[in-house]
Simulated assay, not measured.
Amino acid sequence: MRTEAEQIVTLRLLKGFALLVGDDRVALSSSAQRLLAFLALQDRPQPRTFVARTLWPEAPTTRANANLRSSLWRASRTGHHVIDASVHEMALVDNITVDIHDAVTHAHRLLDESCRCDDILNRQTRDDLSADLLPEWSDNEWVLIEQEQYHQLRLYALEAMAKRLTTAGRYGEAVAAGLAAVHAEPLRESAHQALIDAHLAAGNRAAAQHQYLQCRRTLLEELGLEPSEALRHLLPYMTSR
């Protein structure tokens, strides 16, 4: 049995914010949550002045710095060491497991055609890439930027995952990855294409046709556009009619 000092500390940012020590959720103020989330999304220690200015962009410098000190104090009151802070800079402590870090690493591996990814072609990876980053947070520009960056990365990664699974003959899993990509961005033709490719590879022409028609209907209703030539060529027996 782990002692308190040995318990794993996990920070979840996908699907929403949660700080866990073992299986227990740690209560944090909203300002402390934002401080932890911001630091978790940085790849190096950040100057305190930059953190304060980013998290409280509309506040005067003195107020922003005071807010930062208050948030840091609130984070320290959890009883767990989660932030390394000096006079000039701060960072999330190294021993905290952050879910989006693994998701981003897996996404880049999936997009690297020279990389073997058999160990991450699984449901956990698909679920992580299907999740939005801090979906209920939209009140700060830095959050919106991070959300969009991860959104675009995970879309490409889900499509790449579907293609890898299709190539491996794991058609059911390929379809699941393709559906996740389409669900995340219904107007994205490349997501529909990855899904249609999986259906066709499995020999399910009716399912491929259904997906094409759904894509076409969505594009026409939302954008007034027909599917691209590349997508139409996947189903020549339909588009030649």
Rank of each mutant, 00 (worst) to 15 (best):
E159V: 13
H192D: 12
T166Q: 09
P45K: 11
Y150R: 07
I120R: 10
N122H: 10
A131Y: 01
E159D: 08
R154K: 15
L225A: 11
L219A: 00
V9S: 05
Q42D: 00
H106N: 15
V93K: 08
P135A: 07
L179G: 07
H199Y: 15
A207G: 12
A168D: 14
P60M: 00
W142E: 11
V104A: 14
R241P: 05
F38M: 07
L220D: 11
A160V: 11
E136S: 12
G178H: 03
R74S: 09
E159F: 02
C115V: 12
N67C: 10
A91C: 08
P236D: 04
R44I: 00
N140E: 12
L165P: 09
G79E: 12
L110P: 11
L41P: 08
Q152L: 13
T49I: 15
Q209P: 02
E141I: 13
E185M: 13
A191C: 10
V98C: 09
L213K: 12
P135C: 06
Q33R: 15
S228P: 08
V82Y: 01
L11R: 01
L133E: 05
G178N: 05
A207D: 13
R12S: 09
E141K: 10
A32K: 04
R216N: 04
Q149H: 09
T10D: 06
R63G: 01
R170E: 15
H183A: 15
S29C: 06
D132R: 14
V93W: 02
V175Y: 08
D84I: 03
E4N: 14
S71G: 12
R116I: 05
T10G: 06
S228C: 07
L72T: 12
P45F: 06
E6P: 00
T62C: 08
S30N: 03
R109D: 12
T125L: 11
E136Y: 14
